[in-house]
Design a binder for these strands. Structure first.
Lengths: 344, 344
DNA sequence: ATATAGCACTCTCGAAATGAGAGTGCTAAC
DNA sequence: GTTAGCACTCTCATTTCGAGAGTGCTATAT
């Protein structure tokens, strides 16, 4: 069954109003607030129909109407394509990015901060992660005695570092030689490639190679790279979170990195870069998030390096603000990633 | 005026009980719950005295007693020296640390997690930070085109990395030579030392040196290094935070890194490594934390590299658990830092 | 047919009323 | 010094109540 034009406008207006005020919207209030040329009675009739169709519901018989999940979905579907971030805001955001120093960590933190601020929700951003990790460069630096700092650089610029403790002291010179040999040998190889290489005759070389392999595996398994979040306290004052334990429990998800990653991976697996998903009411099997919505997007260079970013908020979140912001920041990060690995 | 032995015991018991139950403790309840050989009436008399002296107060005339800040302070002072973490817990924690891979980042995350879990509060840990940054090693790696990854290692193992974009492409070979020259020239120097060096004749060398200097300055100004926190959601369900807006607002401090740093620096400036401070009710001029307490400690090698860690919770926090945990983890981190930079 | 006015009806929400219970302080006796 | 007893106070949960909000339905106007 289709919605008439009038029903559609009314529905959108109701959702919008509810998002702003957080209280059930009444026929009278609607008629007054927005000067529609309709009487409350007429609006009531239409509301009854919309309720029948599952877009609205009444908390109790003598309250106004509140959108159902279906109602939110309709709203989001309608405004998805039209919503644009004001240009001044775009410039402001872009400015911050291009002014920060060019460092993945900075960018991620900044992205999380911008998202949280603009949307007044909780933001999550994962660092860009190569689909397949390739060795680029290793550096072995003796700190002192048997302690060695290993800095491993992957193709694409990802860096991992760790401190090793050797069984016996080794000179910096020997470390440098080992590093040089490995750099030549392993350049551009994937973890699988390295695993299938024959053992090195030199014991130190062999040990280091194994450690590198291990590190690359670890890097690969971190499906989504590091996770940055911001704005946790934003939602604390939202009525949904003050009142319901359930909503508060949802926040716990955001502190547990492993579940969070799971969530992200699951929701963004089938979404392509550029595409944007809105999950309303914990769609996709997240019981804990039944009262929440997420706006997520993937960014990066498809097939090479990608990451994801999103915003979580109450189902009543300001989609009109959140959606374009997520989309814009995703685009920005894609550009930055692109520039960084250009000409690969 | 001194407290009699009986008053002291009573006071400690009351504080302990209140910490556990979160509700005002009554004379009767106290007499029943702990089998003291005293009647409620006697206890009431003593309570009246303790109230007089400012250690207790009554939320209203017909409620039990609640500790005042002064009461908490007394409690903490008394148990400060005796509280010990059960050995099984100690082993469990140590195990986690020695099992994790030896990486500052891992350690910090782990420390934050352990603190948050054990104390059921919000934990904060700052990475160890050298009192004075000294150059150790630089590595320049061409990623592609004009993009160069600069990895800077300080004495002590601190690493900073950034991506540079040069005005024109430079070969890896030339970068390596520059790095080698700078490594020789700058080894062991402080930022000030470097600033006073004459300009290099080679333009690339000079540019890089300036960038290194800049990076070191930045590293120095980050007074407390990176900040790790955990357990934010722990306190959300505590009654204090559910009820009062004020307490909730305090959490906002913890999302704003800059204020947080300020707080840490100010509170730990005059505390020595090994010492442990308990700030009750926002002592030290933090209005926002009037309802909270913090247990903070400094760790590391005095005069060389230090960091700090702490736990924030409601004034009603389980000090008996938190204090020994903070102390133990601080010791552990000190050991780890020590091992890492041993023989410097 | 569609929109509207009117009205009866239902339900929530806040305020006021009430009463039980918790806990105290004081006094007098042990 | 300790304790039993008792009067007193205040809170908190519960109930009652009425006002108000908002609806759905029906009859009327366009």
């Amino acid at each position: 069954m289709e919605l008439t034009e009038r029903q559609k406008n009314l529905l959108l207006l109701i959702v919008k109003d509810y998002i702003e005020t957080a209280r059930p919207v009444s026929s009278k209030g609607l008629a007054e607030h927005y000067h529609i040329h309709l009487s409350p009675a007429t609006i009531r009739n239409e509301m009854a129909v919309l309720t029948e169709m599952g877009y609205l519901r009444q908390p109790h018989v003598s309250a106004g109407r509140v959108p159902t999940e279906e109602g939110y979905r309709y709203f989001v579907r309608e405004m998805m394509n039209q919503a644009e971030l004001p240009e001044s805001v775009q410039r402001m955001i872009a400015h911050q990015f291009y002014q920060s120093r060019p460092d993945i960590d900075q960018w991620m933190t900044l992205a999380a901060s911008v998202l949280a601020h603009q949307s007044q929700g909780v933001s999550v951003v994962t660092a860009p992660h190569p689909d397949q990790v390739k060795f680029k460069h290793v550096e072995l630096i003796s700190t002192q005695g048997r302690q060695v700092l290993m800095v491993l650089v992957m193709v694409g610029g990802e860096v991992s570092q760790q401190i090793l403790t050797l069984s016996e002291p080794v000179t910096q010179e020997r470390l440098s030689q080992t590093a040089a040999r490995l750099n030549k040998l392993l350049a551009g190889l994937t973890a699988d490639d390295i695993a299938s290489l024959p053992a090195r005759s030199d014991a130190l070389d062999q040990d280091m190679m194994m450690l590198i392999l291990q590190d690359m595996r670890r890097s690969e398994s971190r499906l989504a790279g590091e996770i940055y979040t911001d704005g946790l306290t934003n939602v604390l004052s939202e009525p949904e979170f003050v009142e319901s334990d359930e909503a508060r429990r949802a926040l716990r998800l955001f502190e547990e990195r492993s579940t969070l990653q799971d969530l992200l991976v699951r929701t963004t697996l089938n979404s392509s870069v550029g595409g944007l998903q809105v999950l309303i009411g914990g769609e996709g099997g997240w019981e804990e998030l039944r009262q929440c919505s997420m706006v997520v997007a993937r960014y990066g260079v498809p097939g090479l390096v990608t990451g994801m970013l999103g915003v979580l908020g109450p189902m009543r979140m300001p989609y009109a603000r959140t959606i374009p912001t997520v989309r814009y920041v995703a685009g920005l990060l894609s550009d930055l990633v692109n520039e960084t690995i250009a000409g690969e």
